[in-house]
């Protein structure tokens, strides 16, 4: 009986927490994506960019984290997207797809920084971002 009560309590807490998590907004610049950026997200997924790249440190580790790469500008990104490199394959993306990917990466960039600055670390070991 006690077991059932504990189980029910945990499930309820989980449901409440889930609702809380779903409805939370991010803090800075967390705006909805443009249609182009939405398309870009689909290109990102369709080409499986995240098998080599991370966003906020999540993804594959062959290539660098791209959360804030958009800061380096469209021209910079375009150079990689157009031709690939020795390690990054050339996906033969057309201009539209490149524009969509750039819009997507700009949108990601605006949502926050991937690196946590040292001064954000709290004495409890947690962060204050």
């Amino acid at each position: 009986m006690l077991k059932r009560v504990v189980l029910a309590l945990l499930c309820t807490a989980c449901a409440v927490f889930t609702a809380f998590v779903y409805t939370r907004k991010g803090q800075q610049g967390d705006v909805p994506p443009s249609d182009t950026a939405r398309q870009g997200m689909l290109v990102w997924q369709g080409k499986n960019c995240q098998s080599c790249h991370q966003l906020y440190g999540l993804g594959g580790y062959l290539g660098p984290d791209l959360t804030n790469v958009a800061e380096k500008g469209d021209g910079y990104m375009r150079a990689f997207l157009k031709n690939g490199t020795a390690r990054m394959p050339n996906f033969h993306l057309n201009d539209q797809e490149i524009a969509q990917l750039s819009a997507f990466l700009h949108w990601v960039d605006r949502s926050g920084k991937s690196k946590v600055p040292a001064q954000a670390v709290h004495w409890t070991g947690s962060y204050q971002l």
Binding site: V21, Q27, Y56, Q128, L129
Partner: peptide, 12 residues
């Protein structure tokens, strides 16, 4: 998994 996300503190 997402400690570094600038989202609500409670989640962290």
């Amino acid at each position: 998994h997402i400690y570094n996300l600038p989202t609500n503190h409670w989640i962290r």
